[in-house]
Amino acid sequence: MTGSKVSDKPRRVHWPTRFTELAASASTPWIQRFYEAGTVAADTALADVPMVALDLETTGLEPQHNAIVSIGLVPFSLDRIRVSGARYWVVRPRRELDLKSILIHRITHEELESAPRFSAVLPELLEALSGRVVVVHYRHIERPFLDQVCRRWTGAGLEFPLIDTMLLEGWAVRRNRSLAQRLGDRLGVRRRPSLRLAACRQRYHLPTYTAHHAMTDALATAELFQAQVAHYFRPDLRVDRMWM
């Protein structure tokens, strides 16, 4: 992963309205149910928002050319991460996996052989996400990949509100840097602090986890978000200030 693109201004969507529109035009019953479940009102305080941390492990960064290998998610709120609701799937991609990414994700060929196709887990996945705001670390993977794969299976893409902990971290890091450091950043003199998940977690004294496992990374992302809010945001902040 690379750092977030500075030029890429997040688009502001009024999600409750958007969900109503999407529910009306949904092509399959479970996608319709997902949109009908709706999302929290835009002025809901962060403390009252049901969330779900999501992580996909993929064979690459391009939704058009790469495939999803595994999915991990854990439902949470600001006060509790609920491990009992965590879900994890290995899915069998249509294309052959290259060996390198198998090793990174610690998934064996046997596991893949017996794994379901993505289409088989999609309804369950949507159910786990429904009514919740999705939290990811680096927004250019999970939503584009899910959008692409839904498009392939159902003909229509998938949209949902998203909070990106990497984006929040970039903001927090910038806010915390001195004028001289920021000047150095602009002149390209100083290295920017890393925004990788593990590096972010370190700044909040969160434990070191084994990276590149969808379940662990989802958990790690949920913890990171709790920590970021504890340090930089008020729990009564409106969720629409953060989602995109």
Partner: peptide, 14 residues
């Protein structure tokens, strides 16, 4: 036990 765990982060002094 591990499956039933819930987690929360507390900032220093909270």
């Amino acid at each position: 036990v591990s499956g039933a765990v819930e987690i929360a982060y507390f900032r220093a002094d909270s």
